[in-house]
């Protein structure tokens, strides 16, 4: 069973590693190039498919890579639209003085603290901010200490530029670039992290809540007593503490087809796609 999960997950991973060939070859077509956050990716891909069906003259190519890549690619003029799941950092603004980063929020998402289903089923349903902090610094290294079974904790961290990590660390440590001495493994995209956690039976990690499934469970966050589950309802009412905006970024005001595409995602139909992807719309 576990092997099958692993295999399916890794096939999904393949689609993310390889350049996404959404476009058909055709020189006369106009192209919108996009890159960035793997959290925004599913929304962008689904919206692009629909958009291209309506506008046969347009190609949309979408490259994953993470929020850092999204900001960088836009900064370097490699793409028309960047995808980010965090805010633009001061350093990014400093690195690209000529770029006028224009952020278009398209939805909201929660970053869940996720653990292997084995641990969840064994009783770890909630963690406090301090507990997660100590797990990531290495002070807590056994599930026993947080009410789970006697098993070492396999701590999964993310590449430093990833939006999910910025948001998660900003809440847990109050520093989006926090260092984690307790980390055992660094992962990249949401799919990769999901695969690694699904294949492990003692792991902890961070994921967009849309990636939670039966092998990868999101724990509730204990905030001064009450426990808040990572759910659509709690994102909507604003009670879940680790949430963020999902955004598209452009250099200045978007124009032409890029503008049309962003408008499409912000439309009623586009917002349905956002919600179908497991996020919360902005309207």
């Amino acid at each position: 069973m576990r092997l099958k999960i692993g295999f399916i997950c890794s096939l999904m991973l393949l689609s993310e590693i390889v350049f996404l060939p959404l476009s058909t070859v055709g020189a006369e077509k106009a192209t919108i190039k996009m890159a960035g956050s793997t959290t925004v990716l599913p929304v962008a891909v689904r919206a692009a498919e629909k958009f291209m069906a309506v506008h046969p003259g347009i190609n949309i190519t979408i490259n994953p890579g993470g929020s850092g890549v999204g900001a960088k690619s836009l900064g370097n003029g490699l793409v028309d639209i960047g995808m980010i799941s965090r805010h633009i950092t001061d350093e990014e603004i400093k690195n690209f003085p000529k770029i006028d980063f224009n952020v278009h929020v398209i939805g909201r998402d929660a970053v869940a603290c996720v653990i292997s289903s084995e641990i969840y089923d064994a009783g770890v349903k909630k963690l406090s901010r301090e507990q997660i902090q100590k797990i990531y610094t290495g002070e807590i290294d056994n599930w026993k200490k947080v009410g789970g079974p006697d098993k070492s904790i396999f701590v999964i961290d993310k590449e430093a530029h990833r939006g999910t990590r910025h948001v998660f660390m900003a809440y847990i440590f109050g520093d989006e670039n926090a260092r984690t001495r307790g980390a055992d493994l660094i992962s990249g995209s949401n799919n990769e992290e999901q695969t690694k956690i699904a294949l492990s039976d003692t792991a902890i990690g961070m994921l967009s809540h849309a990636w939670i499934n039966k092998d990868v469970k999101g724990v509730g966050i204990e905030v001064n007593g009450p426990v808040i589950e990572p759910s659509i309802k709690n994102i909507k009412n604003g009670s879940y503490p680790i949430s963020r905006n999902l955004s598209l970024i452009t250099d200045g005001e978007p124009a032409g087809f890029a503008k049309e595409f962003i408008q499409y995602i912000l439309s009623l139909e586009g917002q349905k796609i956002v919600e179908a992807s497991g996020y919360v719309g902005i309207k």
């Binding site: 576990r2 092997l3 692993g6 295999f7 997950c9 890794s10 991973l13 393949l14 695969t195 294949l199």
Partner: peptide, 14 residues
């Protein structure tokens, strides 16, 4: 290499 990598991640790591 990517094919080996996928086999690695799903079969070999386990």
């Amino acid at each position: 290499g990517v094919v080996y990598g996928l086999l690695g991640i799903s079969l070999l790591t386990t």
